[in-house]
Amino acid sequence: MEKFETLTGIAAPMPLVNIDTDMIIPKIFLKTIKRSGLGANLFDEMRFDRQGNEIADFVLNQTQYRETQILVAGDNFGCGSSREHAPWALADFGIKVVISTSFADIFYNNCFKNGMLPIVMPQEVVDVLMKDAEHGSNARMVVNLEEQTVTSSDGEVFSFEVDSFKKHCLLEGLDDIGLTMEKAASIDAFEAGAAQARPWV
């Protein structure tokens, strides 16, 4: 997995609440057996009309947001389907950080498996960053995972919380499966014990 340490980039505002994974990547694009290439269809139904033309007022279609790397979003981002295609599509587009007051559980976990950082901030901070994001390409935010900070374009610094194990994996770009396989002895022992205790399973 790609490491995540710091990111300096353009942030786009998406204040809508409950942005679900069907919006992020509609199901017709789930018929792939690959992980790559989904960025072209990120937010497809909001971004393009049925003829495939860009919808001009959608944020990511605006000139100043074409290079967006950070999303500042409304509450409960990523709710709905467990599709990992949602973080794959965001990452493929170039968005590596999403900031919101809350995330749906599965989406949140999926991000960390793909070198992406979802950041939970209180409402008042999200409000400040949302305003900052409205400045478009003139406003570059800085995200520092080691320090656990987001710095707005005018230098205001906000701290965030992140699980220490998830942070470690992201900073080092570690592969979960490899890490777990190092604990194979524990899994073997558990299996042996469970076979005794619950042989019907």
């Binding site: 599965i106 976990n109 498996k113 396989m181």
Partner: peptide
């Protein structure tokens, strides 16, 4: 509970899930 595809691979390979 539901899991993402990376976790599907993790469960296939290890029969466990990293959880808090």
């Amino acid at each position: 509970h539901g899991i993402g595809t990376s976790e599907v691979e993790h469960v296939l390979a290890t029969q466990t899930l990293i959880q808090k």
